[in-house]
Design a protein around this nucleic acid. Sequence first.
DNA 1: CGGTTCTTTGAGGACCATCAATACGCGTGG
DNA 2: CCACGCGTATTGATGGTCCTCAAAGAACCG
Lengths: 228, 228
Amino acid sequence: MTPERFDSIKDIPLFAKITDESFEHLTRGAFVQNFPSNVEIITEGDTADFLHIVQSGCVELFSTWSNRETTMTTLYENSTFILAATMKDRVNLMSARTLQKSRIIMIPSENVRSVFQSDPHFAVAIVDELSRCYRATIRNMKNLKLRTSIERLANYLLKQYRRRGNTLAFRLPIEKRRLASYLGMTPENLSRAFTNLKPYGVVVDGQNITIADLDKLIEFAIPDDLID
Amino acid sequence: MTPERFDSIKDIPLFAKITDESFEHLTRGAFVQNFPSNVEIITEGDTADFLHIVQSGCVELFSTWSNRETTMTTLYENSTFILAATMKDRVNLMSARTLQKSRIIMIPSENVRSVFQSDPHFAVAIVDELSRCYRATIRNMKNLKLRTSIERLANYLLKQYRRRGNTLAFRLPIEKRRLASYLGMTPENLSRAFTNLKPYGVVVDGQNITIADLDKLIEFAIPDDLID
DNA sequence: CGGTTCTTTGAGGACCATCAATACGCGTGG
DNA sequence: CCACGCGTATTGATGGTCCTCAAAGAACCG
């Protein structure tokens, strides 16, 4: 249907173990699309006709209500989204927009549901991915309900530190205002939260963060395997 | 293995369409247990050896961190819990305690995973349940992040109203302090939130709630299909 | 380089948590 | 049946956290 090649998809865990037949079936009617930055790809309330996969770039999932908006999560390479809506054939509960120039793979939801039934390996992969996203959301919610905003920021910084292979200096991957929304606060408050973390050795220079005293920050943040 | 009978389980959507063979396999090593009220059934951090199902009674899922505790959700008849941890063979992210005398079905996680692979109907049911729980959590999170505490309470009352077949007078199903925790506030604040809803026709008498002016409450709460 | 957006800082106020004290509800045992 | 005790619910006072508004500075982009 399109001249695009889907070989790179096979690197994604979701498709790693499936048969060639399943793969052929899945990609029938699928396509790859390039989006510029800051484009709304899907809108909450719309039906989930395609399973989306971020091949490259960066996508923000967000939600709105009554003139308010909040960032739910941010996705990078090889992340899927709207998997639950795809499987249940329901409307999306979140909207998605690109934060950078991004390449998005779109697979018809019907194909996903039908291969799910015919290929047990794919079924396992789907349920694995679904469980992973579900558990990530539970962690996120625990973070929001059990910690203050400053504690959330401190733990966010520690998570970034770990994700980059224990690097003490790094750049924030997203704008501060989006980070603020993700952490459940206003941009103004995020600024002040950074100031509050200064005594614990957090140095901020624009998007550049340096953790000058890891032990002190950990002592303050109390990271937890069941949240972070 | 136990003299308990599992027939009643078949009423649960999760098991509705499975074969007798799958059912036999699933219930091998399974058991039913009666718990008194206020007993911690599972603890976060423990491995999920069993899929749990509330056959009767009421179970609260909660989480703790650094001396704080929060109610994540409350479950009633025919609800499953720790399904994601079961499927991924990981530790539980939440603890569970009974809020009433409850009857809990426990099915070995291994059985669930193995029947998932052998019975496509069961696989569909599992992914359906998983997606349902996932989406419920997303809704919950949107509720928490996009609404003030009073708005959350107003929408909670409207949800109770709808769940009971549009009944304007009903009893709260749980204690107020647990409701407060679920809604992300303190018991004191819940009291004041109820007071704040008086002008919108909410009458409170202990656990008994009466919605005296439905339109006014709806106008204030702005319920949303994508949250509630 | 100019305009736009983002970030920061300050002031003020709304919301919410904590602490403390009292009232209420309920189950138990006298 | 009533008295008692315990946990829950309410109410008030207070302080902290966080949001809003406003303005200035910084970064980004065409």
